[in-house]
Amino acid sequence: MLSLRNIYKTFAPGTPSEKRVFDNLSFEVADGDFITIIGSNGAGKSTLFNLIAGSFLTDKGTIILDGKNITMTPEHERARVIGRLFQDPLKGTAPGMTIEENLALAAGKGGWLSSIDRKEKREFRERLALLNMGLEDRMHHPVGLLSGGQRQALTLMMATFNTPKLLLLDEHTAALDPATSEKVMEITNKMVKENHITCMMITHNMESALCSGNRTIMMNDGNIVVDVSGEDRQKLTVSDLLDMFSEASGNRLDNDRILLGQ
């Protein structure tokens, strides 16, 4: 499904602030995988997503998505098949535009000169009703009036409107309050399962790293140090996972937010 082969990435090469993030990283994602990713601060989790989504290009190495080499494909073209959510709920929607207009952009149906027709409007309402947030009755409200949780749920709906081949979730519930966070996570699980979307999710919540998805990886210093799936994973507890991490990386997990969460 997704395959990263021998990826190298260094920021600011040749300067005093040079930072080598990936040094020959290879990684495979199978079709239908739901991978949860945890890691220490600066392990390269977000950089990994940026490389996959095309926010910046690799220095060396190849990225193949669904049999197509996308190593040099620009970000907006990859975005047609890769959905992405950020921690900041303000990043995924246009606040000055209505819910309906935002959805129309995500749906992207018809030619550039076509506008939203009645059939589409109905479809938008039906889809929004699935969120159970009452958004379907606020189609003409500007998105800027919604709460963070509502905006993130809407972003999720937009990212999956045309079922993507790959969904990248970068701590997308971290900025929400616990109840909302749980609700958004519930919607996420439901959407991923129903549409059979291959998904990668960065999280700092060890619990949800283990109970969501079918595979968990832990990253440290640009390397994947733990990679568990299947039966091994089902038996794991949070403390097992922490032990595995310190054993594999030679030091303790230093992600303050993970540790504070324990």
């Binding site: 989504a53 926010s55 907006h76 950020f86 246009a94 535009m97 952009l105 992207g108």
Partner: peptide
């Protein structure tokens, strides 16, 4: 309205 959103969308 939101360059961040556009950057990570198919626009």
């Amino acid at each position: 309205n939101n360059p961040d959103m556009v950057r990570s969308s198919s626009i």
